[in-house]
Amino acid sequence: MHDTRTISRTDERPPDAAGSDDAVAETDQVLSPTRLAWKSFRRSKLGLVGSLMVLLLIVIAIGGEQFSPYDAYSMDSSVSLEPPSLAHPAGTDRFGRDQLTRLMEGTRISMLVSFVAVVLSLVIGIPLGLIAGYYGGLAGTVIMRGVDVVFAFPTILLALMLVATLGASLPNLILAIAVIFQANVVRIVRASVMSVKEREFVEAARAVGARDSVIMAQFILPNVLSPVIVQATFHLSLAIFIEAALSFLGLGTQPPTPSWGLMLNESRTFMEFAPWLTIFPGLAIIFAVLGFNLMGDALRDAFDPRLSQR
């Protein structure tokens, strides 16, 4: 039953919570919840490190080969399997291609795959989650059973199955990752919507006659975004991981396009006498995953209402 709970007196709020007239007048800066979260995010040192790592990856992804005197695709058998040197800081592969250049080009692929897949998963997942959470009923049931199907399989296995069915190609890989991720997005959005829609400000909006679409767009969506953004950050790193794994298995990026996972795959045979070919793509994957995760952790803390001061 929906009835008045005797709500706890405001004593539980942090002692500095009560703003007074003068306090409102004193601060010139408008502190929106987003800005508060941003302030707290900036305080996190690890978050800063993570963001810088991600920024570096983005710059490399955009600039790509322009930073390198070599071409990622042109072969030169005279320098095949060279160990790291001044000319080739990360060595060369068996076709004599500069590995550092290929890693940079691979960054572009990895970033492209993860960003497009994550954006796509949000585009699919957020509306579905909103509908499932706000209306429930038959639509909600259908959506959630779909989500259950996705969750019934291990992530990598499902990605593998999807790509194997759709055909091994980059767009299909992106689509497969997006389909997997949207299930998670739906689940998170739905759970948040279900708690937010019980809040009284939603009832206040209904009491003035606002339509469901307006309520969802202006009252519910803005209040469910923070957990989604945090999750999306973790998805970015997971996407890099899945892309690498599937490419390693030959189901993602197709040669000669360089991708970290594919480079790992190609270097397998030379691992014993050309370990740099394995080590550097591995480091790149670790670097990217770490960067996104550090950023995600800091974002989660920043959005956590218990940790950020009101």
Partner: peptide, 24 residues
């Protein structure tokens, strides 16, 4: 119903939860 809502309004118990935290 929307038209009638002009005439009847509500004030809630907890002012913090009755305002959208992301709306000025």
């Amino acid at each position: 119903l929307r038209r009638l809502r002009r005439r009847m309004q509500i004030v809630f118990q907890d002012p913090y939860s009755s305002f959208n935290p992301r709306m000025t």
